[in-house]
Amino acid sequence: MLELRLVQGSLLKKVLESIKDLVNDANFDCSATGFSLQAMDSSHVALVALLLRSEGFEHYRCDRNMSMGMNLNNMAKMLKCAGNDDIITPSRPMMAVTPSPSCSKVQVRFTCCFAQDKIADFEMKLMDIDSEHLGIPEAEYHAIVRMPSSEFSRICKDLSSIGDTVVISVTKEGVRFSTRGDIGTANVVCRQNTTVDKPEEATIIEMNEPVSLTFALRYMNSFTKATPLSNTVTISLSSELPVVVEYKIAEMGYVRFYLAPKIED
């Protein structure tokens, strides 16, 4: 049996919005410790890993491990209904997700916090997904950059109007984002900056050794759809591994995007 209730239903909406364009179908794995998902995009270039710990839910009960295969676009459509209803407060809908006994459908219930006489029920079909689970090793990264997520989003968007790929280089100077296209080149350098009013506005660069990697901007731009989840983003780079772009979900977990670099032909 699985029962979970999330007071901040908007959080799940933001999670779905951040991953639905990258991954069509995915298994949500539920265990006593929480709700997780791991899925690759169809071309196996990027991987998303989501964790929502049980402590972050208002109510969480999972008696046995289960996997619920869902079409993420359909799930996002259902969750959008919570926000589009005038009576349901978009920022604080209560949400319950309960799979049916046969686990072929999932029932999603939105309850308005301030008008508790209204309940909206949605039932979504589950699907069998033969997904592969990948082992992600613990690794030492050459460089870890933490910066405001809005800044990272803006850089990716700006550079993608000039080129298709971004070279991310970390040196003593800072972190450099570069691109090149038919119309010219662009370089953005962010230096470490901890003298800011709010901690989330800081740029913090931990460098064990200089690193420079090339990535497809199309994917980076897709990852930045998670910007509403967190004020900061952490970018972990190693010359031997996919980059990790992580958005922490306050007190609950994270959404991590792994992207394979472009490599020498």
Partner: peptide, 14 residues
Amino acid sequence: DRKQGNILSFFKRV
């Protein structure tokens, strides 16, 4: 020119 790498060449199936 560079070609796009693949996640499966970094992470193994479990």
